[in-house]
Design a protein around this nucleic acid. Structure first.
Length: 355
DNA sequence: AAGTCGGGGCT
DNA sequence: AGCCCAGACTT
């Protein structure tokens, strides 16, 4: 199955011993539970540990168990996800809690877990192995990188998904059947702290003697995966402030992204006819961010009187069209009571300082 | 199989 | 600017 590792038991022992000694003291490890494992795995989808950490603690304080989460309003749930991104994760986690409390007992196998929203191949294996001692191997980005290097596999994968499927059998063969949860966390921990992209920590690697690319290859060049390029997106937004209130619009609940979140008005969405020469318009700042395969450049324009009144009227008229976004005046002192994406929240906090 | 999710850390 | 991150879901 995996000729490069002659002695799989020794590999498992080396990895687990290292993990027992060197693992980071993460909150979902120090006091584990099924609920904490589920929440952490949702937060960690496409999100680094460092980013999720503060959210996890606040979440646990507000929603300590499935029952509390299931009975909470979705608005409050989203509030505690505010800024983390990929907000369907929060909606799915909320739906999952509602489903779990209706069951006599939690699902037991990856197949059963995958019937619940937001749970796929990775998360089902992670939950069952970590919280239920079920022998399912995880294959995430860390595992792919570690296994590609250990096996010195320089094949070019046309997508991340293809690489995941390629290494699944290997991951299964290396999984320690006695401690599957720790074994899974150990190989991910190795990828996150030792076998990192730059491959600078090979001298301290606990499985260096098993690593084919360290012996005769180029670890830092592996894995070889074609990544989709980020496309640039340009957005112009309006800053309209009147008596300590700012004009925002709310994205409809049925929108595909950022539903129920507030944003600075988008020129295109409101069909604002911007005359750059207009003295009421002043370029405020340029903001850059990115999500997945998009790199977004947003230009914020401060709009003053008398154009501000005209624009406000335009925005207000737009409210009549139900498919459009609704406009609201929001007091700058109470922006914590509405839902904002991370970037918008930061921008408006900055504007508060200027007013 | 590819695109989307409008996030962010790191080099 | 590019790559990656404890991915899942839609089309």
């Amino acid at each position: 199955m995996f000729p490069l590792i002659k002695n799989i038991p020794k590999f498992r022992t080396a990895l687990l011993s290292w993990y027992d000694a060197e693992q980071r003291p993460l909150p979902w490890r120090t006091t584990p539970s099924l609920y904490r494992t589920v929440v952490s795995e949702f937060m960690l989808q496409q999100t680094q540990v460092k980013t999720a950490l503060p959210y996890f603690d606040q979440w646990m304080h507000q929603f300590p168990d499935f029952d509390t989460l299931a009975k909470a309003d979705i608005e409050l749930v989203l509030k505690y996800w505010e800024g983390l991104g990929y907000y369907n994760r929060a909606r799915n986690l909320h739906k999952l809690a509602k489903a779990i409390i209706q069951l006599d007992e939690p699902p037991k196998t990856p197949e059963q877990w995958k019937l619940l929203p937001g749970i796929g191949d990775y998360t089902s294996a992670a939950i069952t192995s970590i919280a239920q001692n079920y022998p399912a191997a995880v294959v995430d980005g860390n595992v792919v990188r570690v296994l590609a290097r250990i096996s010195n596999e320089n094949k070019c994968f046309s997508s991340n998904g293809q690489a995941v499927e390629f290494f699944r059998a290997t991951a299964e063969s290396l999984l320690d059947p006695i401690r599957p949860g720790d074994a899974n966390q150990a190989i991910m921990e190795l990828g996150a702290t030792v076998c990192v992209k730059a491959a600078t920590n090979c001298p301290t690697c606990p499985v260096q003697s098993f690593c084919s690319s360290y012996k005769s290859g180029d670890p830092k060049s592996l894995p070889n995966i074609v990544r989709p390029k980020r496309t640039k997106v340009f957005i112009d937004r309006a800053i309209i402030i009147k008596e300590n209130s700012i004009l925002l619009h709310k994205i409809p609940s049925n929108a595909k992204r950022l539903s129920d979140h507030f944003e600075l008005p988008n020129f295109e969405a409101f069909n604002i006819n911007l005359d750059a020469q207009n003295e009421s318009v002043r370029k405020h700042s340029i903001k850059r961010r990115s999500i997945s395969n998009q790199s977004i450049v947003e230009t914020l324009y401060k709009i003053n009187s008398p154009l501000a009144e005209t624009v406000t009227q335009t925005v207000t008229q737009t409210v009549e069209e139900p498919t459009q976004q609704e406009a609201y005046w929001v007091d700058l002192k109470s922006i914590n009571s509405i839902l904002l994406s991370g970037p918008h929240k930061r921008w408006i906090e900055e504007l508060k300082e200027e007013v």
